[in-house]
């Protein structure tokens, strides 16, 4: 049946260029957005330094990876970075906690308005940015040494006999699997554990949490540790999938914020959903559907152009457009996030 084959070809094409990349990118954004949303929910400010925290964590992991590689450690087909990751997380968590002690705790104790903490986070952003560039330099770094493809386009074609190929990279699978595990673990922690519940209580109603005897310092400490861990994991996954460059990570701040706000800031489920919403909109709006239409539409119906809604150059802008639209229509986000005072 040629009809079915055509549809399958279209589907493969769509999966290859939209579904799988979107899924991987969305997972990376979701992890980043979770960190932003936790900090916002508990410390109550928009942390502009989160992108650079991601860069820092990734840098530490890369340095560890290089060191392990020089020792000849390898867990092929998995990337060495996976063993380096826990150390990256620990160092980044220490760094984040130290930053809080040195900078943010002062304003928290003084009960400064959130915007002052946001301005302080701009200062932190500058410094982290400098540290990362100083240590590892501003250039692109590739550190993924695992197996490249789980499935190559050619193999897929041979396997299925379709005209279109489907390639799946290990990094994409790894990203989705790791993100899934991390998100499940985090949600279990927040929903079930005593400390997780205390964090939710603190985020919900700080005064009442204090009256219940919840120790605010501990909640803040755990929040930074989790935020640093999420930032490092998100950064390493992104870096393995694409590449590591400090400036790109700084720019990731924007889609991550978009994801957190679209989902409803302060709301963990919202952050995950927001991550995928932003990622898929970016990929879908800038994908040229021409080839897909060739398969699914009758000849007379076929469009002349590329059938691309926006040029690929606008990719980054898409997340801001979503962000702005959500802020205007429903400022609390898809899931009801923090009330904007």
């Amino acid at each position: 049946m040629p009809e079915t084959i055509e549809m399958l070809n279209a589907l493969t094409l769509f999966s290859n260029f939209v579904l799988i990349p979107g899924l991987a990118y969305g997972s990376q954004l979701a992890l980043g957005a979770l960190g932003v949303t936790l900090v916002f929910g508990i410390l109550r400010f928009a942390n502009f330094a989160h992108g650079d925290l991601m860069a820092f964590g990734t840098m530490v992991t890369i340095l560890m990876t290089w060191w392990l590689q020089s020792l000849g450690v390898s867990i092929s087909p998995l990337p060495t970075a996976l063993i380096a990751l826990p150390i990256g997380i620990i160092v980044t968590a220490l760094f984040a906690v130290a930053t809080d002690k040195a900078v943010f705790s002062f304003y928290r104790l003084k009960k400064s308005p959130p915007v002052i903490l946001t301005i302080a986070s701009i200062g932190v952003m500058f410094m982290m940015n400098a540290i990362v560039r100083f240590i590892i330099g501003p250039n692109d770094q590739r550190f993924y040494d695992g197996e490249k493809f789980l499935m190559k386009a050619r193999e897929f074609k041979q396997l299925t006999g379709l005209d279109e190929g489907l390639s799946i990279r290990y990094t994409q699978v790894l990203t989705v699997v790791v993100a899934l595990v991390v998100v499940i673990a985090l949600f279990w922690f927040l929903q079930r554990s005593r400390t997780g519940k205390a964090m939710r209580a603190f985020s919900d109603n700080e005064d009442l949490a204090l009256l219940s005897g919840i120790n605010p310092d501990r909640v803040v400490l755990i929040t930074w540790i989790i935020a640093a861990a999420l930032a490092t994991i998100a950064g390493v996954l992104y870096g393995m999938d694409k590449s590591f460059k400090p400036f790109t990570y700084f720019q990731l701040l924007l889609p991550i914020f978009a994801a957190a706000i679209v989902g409803g800031i302060g709301h963990p489920v919202g952050a995950v959903v927001g991550g995928y919403v932003v990622a898929f909109s970016e990929v879908m709006v800038t994908y040229a559907y021409k080839k897909v239409f060739v398969y699914v539409l009758p000849e007379d119906w076929q469009p002349e152009g590329l059938s691309q809604l926006l040029s690929t150059d606008y990719k980054f802008a898409v997340s801001f457009i979503i962000l702005v639209v959500v802020l205007l229509i429903k400022p609390t986000g898809l899931f009801k996030g923090k009330v904007i005072k």
Binding site: A198, R200, A201, D204, L208, S212
Partner: peptide
């Protein structure tokens, strides 16, 4: 009360 938490979680807190 902790509005986003369940009644039981409120008591636990």
């Amino acid at each position: 009360v902790f509005t986003s938490m369940t009644v039981q979680e409120n008591l636990e807190m």
